[in-house]
């Protein structure tokens, strides 16, 4: 099987990887680039644990071939915090105890960040539907929704 040479950008850093044609972006992020913050929960696009952005759009990295990332910008959980510290969403997830086991947390934060970039003031229903592709089995979602609402409020104040 011939490997493919893929040039992409991950969290703003140029990356070059050799990958198999069938390998998913998730596999390559985790196995080739060591970015294990993106989690695998199902490999069928049903749990959202592997959420990343691809040219700014929210996707499940299990349903993207690594080869498709050629020339694109990939954003993962590792790129959410900045050198000054945690992103507001990360801080709010902590303050609201919006995680228990934490396996779904990176996916939720990546997804919620895209939401707030598009809709700075989403109502509860909007948040719930936007995040419907991110399964959490621990929290019953309540504290996650509140964390996102609180982050939106804080970001609005900052703006």
């Amino acid at each position: 099987m011939s490997k493919l040479h893929v040039t992409t950008s991950v969290n703003g850093q140029p990356e070059e990887v050799l990958c198999e044609p069938h390998q998913s972006l998730l596999d390559v992020l985790r196995d080739e680039l060591g970015l294990t913050g993106t989690k695998e929960g199902c490999s069928t696009g049903d749990c959202g644990a592997c959420s990343v952005t691809l040219d700014g759009r929210l996707v499940c990295s299990c349903l993207v071939l690594a080869a498709e990332a050629e020339g694109k910008e990939v954003g993962t959980i590792e790129g959410v915090a900045n050198p000054d510290g945690l992103h507001v969403l990360q801080q709010k997830f902590l303050e609201h105890a919006a995680l228990q086991c934490g396996i779904c947390t990176p996916g939720f934060i990546v997804a919620a960040k895209v939401l707030l970039e598009r809709d700075p003031n989403p109502d509860e229903t909007t948040i719930r539907y936007w995040l419907a592709g991110n399964l959490c089995r621990c929290t019953g979602y309540d504290k996650i929704i509140r964390a996102v609402q609180d982050a939106a409020t804080e970001l609005a104040h900052e703006a």
Partner: peptide, 23 residues
């Protein structure tokens, strides 16, 4: 009281290592 959990930062940044994360 309701302080931030000690392992929290690791878990919101993707640094925490779960079962499939060891290489």
């Amino acid at each position: 009281t309701r302080p931030v959990r000690p392992d929290g930062v690791e878990k919101v940044t993707g640094r925490a290592n779960f079962g499939a994360d060891l290489y």
